[in-house]
């Protein structure tokens, strides 16, 4: 049996989680103060994911870069692939906040969207 220590990132409280790996694919979790901590702990052990934020280049001199985010947490393994795509991206303006830029990243069902619009 292996024991892992993790800090929950679901909210600013930052609970210290202790995760016991039972070896049969199940986990015993303690230290969480709400159900989100348990879900987070299991995800961290089986399929860790993060929301990715970055900026994309535009064709404008006024707002040369605009911010983007994934609309859901992305599996760790796809983050570098996404970052490479983001840095190669060139956005034509005008564009509105919420615009879909990259659909279904790495077949994860997660999308990249613009978080600030600009006219020029």
């Amino acid at each position: 049996m292996k024991i892992h220590q993790k800090i929950c990132i679901s909210c600013p409280a930052g609970c210290h989680l202790e995760i016991k790996e039972n070896g049969d694919g199940t986990f015993d979790i303690s230290g969480n103060t709400c159900p989100r901590g348990k879900t987070y702990a299991i995800n961290e052990m089986t399929d860790p994911r993060r929301v990715v934020t970055a900026v994309v280049a535009t064709d404008s001199a006024v707002t040369p870069y605009l911010p983007v985010k994934t609309d859901a947490p992305l599996p760790f393994g796809s983050i570098q692939t996404l970052l490479k795509k983001i840095y190669a991206f060139k956005l034509e303006l005008p564009a509105k906040s919420g615009m879909l830029l990259i659909e279904n990243i790495d077949n994860t069902g997660v999308n990249l969207i613009l978080t600030r619009g600009s006219e020029k």
């Binding site: 990132i9 679901s10 909210c11 600013p12």
Partner: peptide
């Protein structure tokens, strides 16, 4: 800073 930022910004 917040513990969760230690986790997701440094530990990761």
């Amino acid at each position: 800073g917040l513990s969760r930022n230690i986790a997701q910004c440094l530990d990761d």
